[in-house]
Design a protein around this nucleic acid. Structure first.
Lengths: 203, 203, 203, 203
DNA sequence: AATGAATGAGCTTTCATTCAT
DNA sequence: AATGAATGAAAGCTCATTCAT
């Protein structure tokens, strides 16, 4: 409540950091990672290009911060999903994942479609946090395998990663607008998720 | 046959065109599309940047030529797959697709991971040719559905596209080196393909 | 008559020379001298850029040819003007000059608005031919002075040149679209010519 | 006075802006607008090409700034002219105009000889300022017409523009070195101005 | 008479980053 | 905490011209 009435015209301090991150996300939707530039960000948030360096060591660091933020948000979204049984929970996870990707194309882009060289410098600590997302899938698969509700042919970790690749393909091709317009649609998404889950159906 | 062994120091004519395409592919693996520049290509093939424009109208046109070439090669690879039964053929198609992607990361990148804005200018004629690749999957699914060997819940076209997204996710995450090293491996690929195909198993 | 029916798709020989000159004029209207390029000309006439050099030694030479052609045409236009008396003839000359300039902006541009450095290499022989145009004015002034019909304060040559500068200012500002739209119009042209001629009115 | 003699090796801040404008003017005399390039300017003032963009948004903006500066200077020069009577003032204006043009060929060039397309983007506000110059002529004509000291056949605005075109023709052909050397000279200028003014002589 | 291939120099503009203030 | 000034490198692309064929 203390802040009421003190809205500065141009953000400063922690607000500026926030504004930078937000505008960067905005630019990512429009022009992709390559269309991103420090000057454009600065112009957008109304500060100087130099000021960005007060909050982020480099363009890489800024990108990494954004990735980490996205990974945390994804984790939040996935953890919120519950389900009475492992199969239900698994489906909920898949749907939440796809929903998150389509709803947050900027995050998704930097999170999963950055050039490996750029990711090579990603901080290990952040990486560990990112990995938790697949682990949610793995845990559910493990539970389901134990209870007999899910058929898991490989190890839970392998199966979870394989499932993830399928979901990622769906999201990324939709975001890239590469799925033929005659095919894309809500039904298509359901069909694709359905196909990805079929492997785990206990018979 | 007289020319065998007389490789010219600098390529000329049609050879130069070929050399440009080849070196562009090489650069794509290293630095991605954004790391690509006309000058780098020229430096690599040993000609002037200007000369590239004798063979390709623009960077876009060069890229499109590469995409089309990749799409044709993929089609060749997929068409070569045969199989006694639809299920066998379907599996062969999937394996061929993944094999192609992993073996030709440069092609794969420009073929399927280019920014949509860049693809907006892709020639319709080329687009039609590109679409044939998914159609190979659709045709097999249709046959399998007819013969009862494959369970196809959606229309063949939708199912084929959904299968394609799964395969694409697998290939693209592997190429991006985003699958955890503890998981990635030949077994992982088989597992992922297996999961993608499970949906079509007649029970 | 031998040529009837043998219209080649792309001009050759003397025809090509003609086509080059014509298309160059066309380009001059659109983009000015600076927007002119050998390649654009070639593209326009449907020949290779190299072929232009078979007919013109350089871009300069091509330009000079165009200037000379324009000067000849202007001379034709001016010589055609007759008039019962020197004042009538003088007015007719002025109107013909302005008419020519406005009707042939491409010619006019290269004839009188080229950078002096570019004109430094203009062939002396051509220069002599160009000078005949002002001389037509001078001759009329001289006659008028002799007959008492025209008041000529300076030498006929000086007076003719001064008159020419006035006409040139009119034409060039109209072509450059620099005369305010609220002012420009047929009346404006008549008024300007009238003002330029007032100096010679015998009182 | 302390700074006298301590000219910095490379200009900075507002000085750089000034230096850019000045060197641009210098280059305009030598090579015309088309010979102008950001790199040449940078080389001339001893800064990087990039730095120019800190002071001017684009080449267009730089040019426009120069035009506006020239228009202001011309206005200063013209306003300074006084004269006991309208005819005297009119003559003084004409002489000042021509003097300004010949003394400032760089300004004159960009002010009045730029390609219309380039002028299309000229800011309306600047345009209004530019128009004041002709208005000075129009006002004097109006006064003279009212007092009966000047014969003004057309509206003052039209007459002023017509007079301007004559003066412009004189200046531009002299700057372009297109007036025959046997004719050009101080007498020629006086003769030309005299001819242009004759139209307004009350009889 | 005509061409395709080739080039070096040049263009305007944008980039991530640094430094003094 | 924030900025303005500055930069070298690089981008895609066009230019007039030459040369071998």
């Amino acid at each position: 409540m203390a802040d009421v009435g003190t809205a500065p015209r141009t953000e400063t301090g922690a607000d500026l950091r926030r504004a930078i991150l937000d505008h960067t996300r905005h630019l990512l939707v429009t022009g992709g990672y390559d269309g991103l530039s420090m000057r454009k960000i600065a112009r957008g948030v109304g500060c100087s290009a130099t000021s960005i360096y007060l909050h982020f060591e480099s363009k890489d660091a800024l990108t990494h911060a954004l990735i980490d933020e996205g990974m945390r948000k994804l984790y939040e979204a996935l953890s919120a999903e519950e389900g009475a049984t492992p199969p239900r929970r698994l489906e909920a996870l898949c749907q939440a994942y796809v929903r998150f990707g389509l709803a947050n194309p900027e995050y998704y882009q930097v999170m999963f479609q950055l050039h490996p060289e750029r990711m090579a410098r990603y901080p290990p600590e952040d990486y560990r946090r990112a990995r938790r997302n697949v682990e949610l899938f793995a845990e559910t698969l493990e539970e389901g395998a134990a209870s007999g509700d899910l058929r898991v042919a490989a190890t839970p970790d392998v199966a979870a990663h394989a499932l993830w690749t399928a979901l990622h393909g769906l999201v990324s091709l939709l975001l890239a607008e590469r799925v033929d317009v005659r095919v894309a649609g809500d039904d298509f998404i359901d069909a694709a998720i359905g196909q990805a889950l079929a492997a785990f159906e206990a018979r």
